[in-house]
Amino acid sequence: MHAHDSKGLIFDIQGHSIHDGPGTRTLVFLSGCPLRCNWCSNPEGLWLRQRLMYKPLYCKNCSARCVPRCAKGAARVVESASRPIIFDRTQCDGCDSMDCIEVCYARALQPSGKWYTVDDLMRVFTRDRCYWGSGGGITLTGGEPLLQQEFVLRVLERCHDTGIATCVETSACVPRTVLQTVLPYIQWLFVDLKHMESAKHQDGTGSGNELILDNIRWIRGTNWPGRMVVRMPVVPGFNDTVANAEATAGFLVDIGLSEINLLPFHRLGTTKYEQLGMAYEYAEQAALSQSCLERLAVVYRDRAITCYLGADTPF
């Protein structure tokens, strides 16, 4: 794919989002991510490129128009009522033309994202801003939104100029210089921390945590006037231990942060793995128990850190 300097790849825009920042917000999911978290719930946002999503639910089992349209010969018919077409992903995932999509009348085939210009996105914000109510605004999330740094910077600048409150949810796994350029235009930051032990972090996400911790510490040290809330997905068997909570709390105390938002693991993204033809390690993972979350919360609260569980936040 060519560099889309003036465009951003977005895999979803959600109006009336209430869980990702203060007030009611329009949530923009940007494609591409430096991490590969095994439990990720938005797998369609992992790559900064479009992938084919096949939704058997909508497949009307037509005369398989998509099969002959595939230049790579990746699509073939199988006699299965629940999943009539199979795509050879080794071929399919390298395809940019996606000719198959336009012949699918049932819209069972969709690209995993759409390219937006800054103006496209600003039109959506301009429309939505009268619905947010007080305290609302936009939240850029992903994927890792800061991977599309030029696009994001231009969007944030425009928001700043037009008085739209901005929030970014980031992994902080990006170069310091990127943070430096965007930070002045952000009022609210969610930083997603996954594990305090770098080796474990490497296991779970494909990267160590040094850059992330450094960035959080650095942001904390600047005179940036915004509010930073650390978020941690609590993943069963990965970071749901008291030891990790203690280490995290220690880190927060150390840098002078006093709140954390724990997000319990959910497997709602399972279907999207199927639609992308990917395997999902956590497909059968049972939900996290409330008692486990409560146990972790105690660790933070004992250290005077306000701990919000899931959607139960004061903002």
Binding site: L27, S41, N42, K55, L263, G269
Partner: peptide
């Protein structure tokens, strides 16, 4: 109809039945 969980995007109808039942 969308399921709303922090940082997550998906339509309700596209979520598998066992997980829907859970919800």
């Amino acid at each position: 109809l969308m399921v709303r969980v922090a940082g997550f995007t998906q339509y309700w109808v596209e979520i598998g039945k066992p997980i829907q039942d859970e919800v």
